[in-house]
Computed example of a mutant assay.
Amino acid sequence: MNLISKTKSVVKTLAAVGLMISLSACEITPIEETTHIPTYGDYYLWLKSLDNEELLQEIEQQNINQHSKSPDADIYLMLLHTLPKSPIYNPYTAKSLLNELQLQYVESRYNPTNLALITLLRDLLNEQLLIIQKYDITTAELTSAKKSLTTQKSTASQQEKELKLKNEQLKELEQQVDLLKEQINQLHRIEKNISEHGN
């Protein structure tokens, strides 16, 4: 009985020591920290949170960075051109910059997340520029149609005036014809009277 209780005591002690070793091992093992490398998507989302004054400051900063050959300044400026609320929003400039960037850099320069955003932006800009082009063509056609309609209305109005004038002239001529007829009838009556009295 004494041996059983000693065995239990040793087992308890060993279990406690084992538990303490496991806990201490957990404590000394460093926890790996995952560092988040900012992406172009992070930058774009950050831009969306800025007000107009802050956007102007960021544009100025990226222009400075571009002159000092900062590697991401060109892309950041391109993203600033794609942001609708940006003071320098211009899809044509953004697409032009994107085309230049694709020529300057190999795609492997971008990590998959950045490459996905750049590819998406290229597709969106192409679609947007196509819509703008269609809008410009449609607007030009509408302006031309309006001018043509105005010209037709003006021509119709002029023709209507001419028609009205001709109608008035026709009425005047009809009145003159009626008057002349009456005069001729009067002359006939006078002649008839003269003839009758002459006999």
Results as ranks from 00 to 15, higher is better:
Ser86Asp: 02
Pro91Asn: 07
Ala140Arg: 05
Lys161Asn: 12
Ser108Thr: 11
Tyr105Gln: 01
Ile131Ala: 08
Lys95Ile: 10
Pro71Met: 10
Thr139Asp: 11
Arg109Lys: 04
Leu83Pro: 03
Pro87Val: 13
Gln133Cys: 12
Ile131Gly: 03
Asn114Glu: 15
Ile132Leu: 14
Arg109Asn: 02
Tyr76Gly: 02
Pro87His: 05
Leu149Ile: 10
Ala156Phe: 09
Lys164Ile: 12
Tyr89Val: 00
Tyr105Asp: 01
Leu130Ser: 14
Lys95Asp: 03
Val106His: 05
Glu160Tyr: 10
Ile75Leu: 14
Glu107Val: 01
Asp123Cys: 03
Glu162His: 12
Gln159Phe: 04
Gln152Ile: 13
Ile75Trp: 11
Leu125Arg: 03
Ser68Lys: 11
Lys164Val: 03
Ser86Tyr: 01
Glu160Asn: 10
Lys85Phe: 01
Gln159Thr: 03
Glu100Tyr: 05
Lys153Ile: 15
Pro87Leu: 06
Leu120Asp: 14
Pro84Thr: 02
Asn65Cys: 08
Thr151Leu: 13
Leu130Gln: 14
Ala140Ser: 14
Arg109Ala: 07
Asp123Pro: 00
Lys161Thr: 11
Lys134Phe: 10
Leu124Pro: 00
Leu165Phe: 10
Leu77Lys: 04
Ala145Trp: 00
Lys69Phe: 15
Leu80Val: 12
Tyr105Gly: 00
Thr139Leu: 09
Leu97Glu: 05
Val106Asp: 12
Ile137Val: 14
Ala140Gly: 02
Lys153Tyr: 14
Leu97Arg: 12
Met78Lys: 09
Ser108Met: 06
Glu162Phe: 06
Thr143Tyr: 07
Tyr105Leu: 07
Leu80Ser: 01
Leu103Ala: 02
Tyr76Gln: 13
Tyr110Arg: 02
Gln66Lys: 12
Pro87Trp: 02
Lys164Thr: 06
Ala94Gln: 08
Asp74Leu: 04
Leu79Arg: 05
Gln152Val: 07
Arg122Asn: 12
Thr93Asp: 07
Lys134Ile: 09
Leu149Gly: 01
Leu121Lys: 06
Lys69Asn: 15
Thr155Asp: 13
His67Ala: 15
Glu160Leu: 15
Thr155Trp: 04
Ser154Gln: 08
Gln104Phe: 01
Ala73Asn: 11
Pro84Ser: 09
Asp136Gln: 13
Thr139Gly: 00
Glu141Ile: 07
Leu124Val: 04
Leu103Val: 11
Ile88Glu: 06
Thr119Ile: 09
Leu163Gly: 00
Gln104Lys: 09
Val106Arg: 09
Glu141Trp: 02
Gln158Cys: 08
Thr155Ser: 05
Leu98Pro: 01
Ser108Ala: 11
Thr119Val: 06
Thr150Phe: 06
Ala73Gly: 13
Leu115Gln: 11
Glu107Cys: 02
Gln102Asn: 08
Pro87Gly: 04
Pro84Gln: 12
Tyr92Val: 07
Thr143Lys: 07
Thr82Ser: 15
Tyr135Gln: 13
Ser108Arg: 05
Glu127Tyr: 12
Leu117Pro: 10
Ala94Cys: 05
Lys134Leu: 15
Arg109Met: 07
Ala140Gln: 12
Gln133Thr: 07
Asn65Phe: 06
Ile88Thr: 05
Pro112Ile: 06
Leu129Lys: 01
Asp72Met: 13
Ser86Leu: 03
Pro84Arg: 03
Gln152Leu: 14
Thr93Met: 07
Leu129Ile: 10
Leu125Trp: 04
Pro87Tyr: 13
Lys164Gln: 09
Asp74Val: 00
Ile131Cys: 02
Pro87Met: 04
